[in-house]
Design a protein around this nucleic acid. Structure first.
Lengths: 342, 342
DNA sequence: TAGTTTGCTGAGAGCGCTCTCAGCACCGGT
DNA sequence: ACCGGTGCTGAGAGCGCTCTCAGCAAACTA
């Protein structure tokens, strides 16, 4: 049995195609009597509109694309992306949109995936995360004026980009500030990828806090990782000889790595070294000891990204929308607050 | 500037629409001379086919749907799904398909999401994970003969379901068998949700192994969790009074919870209690001590699911395809192998 | 009463593509 | 020279929907 079409419903109800379309899309423009007849026909035939045909005719697919370049497999190891994907999916549902996921790992995949996401008419708009700022495809999105929202902070040299981001500078500041207030002075940092704005901003906040308290920034108290647990472990190994009394780590995953390095060095947290990190994803609360960490509102990040995109779709690209979400320090055991007299 | 269409390319190249279409879809049926002319026109105009129009005409969208019911937020806490999503995305790319993600958390969302995924013509086929077996929408997929692949083992009372699964019974068997061979005798199990086939199968493997070695199955050596870390913690608490010398835990997340409960009881792993779990996701290797665990090939699971679906799409529903992937025991510290003389 | 205005409905023209089918040139076989 | 292939191409009919616009009756204004 073939799927019924608008035409079939129209015939069954003894009206025109246009009227059935109206009953579905703008019910209040149809006489109640006719509407009921059409609704019955729809129910009886089990009619469901064909979204593809609708998209072609209306030039609106109601599909949102989410682009995530899976550099360094971090999608797999860091719970940040699952949370983001989930919230974006949820927000898409709430707005009646379908979500298409564009992940890629290699350059060839990237080319192919972007081709499908851009200019094929498949998606109405795009949410882009963690893309390198000078990526040619990313620039193409901007130039072709495809409605999109960036998650993160784009480089400033491109104007009029819609984005939503968390306050990384501020979060890193309060984390470092917290350590200083607890009386620590040799505060190290395990920073992250300095070619990402996130890595840059968190380092910035650390520097700002030190400066505001007139604590000198020492070169050998800063190590750099790549957000992964393993890199946190290595960075901590590198930091240990400098004998820090506290470490601010740019994310939770690296902090768990650092924790292991400290444990293996027969030192304790926070007794010998205090730790504060960033993200507040599940590993933070589950670590031993539980991590004091800066919570970023991942869920709101996704929700607002979708809402911003919907707004752009409805009201045009101008003016550019920017949202910076506040962060919050979650105090647990690893910073030594409570066990310590400043 | 409007997007160029087939018609525009045809005019620019001085051929018919049909010929341009052929150059794009079946290039070798067109005279080289014409083909070159068309290709130049395409390049010059920057033409890209409109996928929506193509879908409507060809009745093939090349979109695959992935349905994940986010019961109990486990998508967020368990790294299983991120890995699965990633592999499915990658396999979709490799097969020139676009992936649409259908997640939902509430009943209303479920209704809405399923409506969009089924019968709207949006997707060619579906990959369904972890759905309750008596879910009405799931049954609808089966009845309407929508091409789909189930990830997991469906209940046997529905025939002709394509599925791909890991050998949960076998994996649980080798895990338990391993503990028995190491000389443990009071082997407890933290099982998982007995209304899932995964939970059931892993329990089955445990029972089988005990039976084969003539070790009695004791009621108070079995506790049940829901795959979450927290439930593993609770289950371990419940098990502790029965004084097991080893525990087989149905997944890694619960094992990390169990680890914490054991640590808090001032007992050591594997000294006082040995632990073996299931999954081999990142938390397993990163735990303290590292977990001996049964590795399931998550990546292949996703790849094969996609390939099976593509096969169904190309060659029809019959016969039903079943794939069971083998599991493998990864021996680390938590089982006490090496430190123990059986 | 005539002339608007208003409110619904149906006809029909697309949306941009695929795909069948007829048409036409050209081939070799007889 | 005739005929049945063979290989390409173009015309045109959809795919299932939206949306404009004309048409028409009822309601209002003067």
């Amino acid at each position: 049995m073939k799927k019924p079409t608008l035409e079939d419903v129209a015939q069954a109800a003894g009206v025109s195609r246009a009227t059935v379309s109206r009953v579905i899309n703008t019910p209040d423009t149809v006489t109640p009597e006719l509407r009921v007849r059409v609704e019955q026909a729809i129910a009886q035939l089990g009619y469901q509109p064909n979204l593809v045909a609708r998209s072609l005719a209306s030039r609106r697919t109601n599909i949102l694309g989410l682009i995530i370049p899976c550099v360094a497999q971090s999608l797999f190891t860091d719970p940040y992306y699952p949370g983001l994907i989930q919230s974006i999916a949820q927000a898409s549902n709430a707005n009646g949109q379908t979500l298409s996921l564009f992940l890629f790992h290699t350059r060839e995949e990237e080319e192919q995936v972007y081709r499908r996401a851009i200019g094929s008419g498949l998606v109405d708009g795009l949410i882009v995360t963690a893309e390198e700022i000078d990526n040619p495809y990313f620039l193409e999105i901007v130039e072709r004026e495809i409605p999109f929202v960036y998650i993160g902070r784009p480089h400033t040299h491109i104007e009029h980009i819609n984005y939503v981001n968390v306050d990384n500078v501020g979060g890193a500041y309060i984390a470092t500030d917290h350590l200083i207030n607890l009386g620590y002075r040799r505060i190290a940092m395990i920073a992250a990828l300095m070619n990402t704005t996130t890595g840059l901003d968190r380092y910035q906040g650390y520097c700002d806090a030190l400066a505001d308290h007139a604590v000198a920034l020492e070169k050998d108290l800063v190590a750099v990782g790549d957000f992964s647990r393993e890199s946190g472990y290595q960075a901590m190994l590198q930091l240990l000889p400098a004998e820090p009394d506290a470490v601010f780590v740019a994310n939770d995953s690296m902090a768990t790595g650092a924790l292991q390095a400290i444990r293996e060095a027969k030192l304790t947290v926070p007794g010998d070294i205090a730790l504060v990190s960033f993200d507040d994803l599940p590993p933070a609360a589950n670590a031993n000891p539980p991590l004091t960490t800066v919570r970023q509102p991942v869920h709101r990040l996704g929700t607002i990204a979708v809402e911003t995109l919907i707004d752009v779709l409805a009201n045009g690209l101008e003016p550019a929308r920017h949202t910076i979400l506040p962060t919050e320090l979650v105090i647990r055991a690893s910073c030594g607050a409570g066990s310590r007299v400043p």
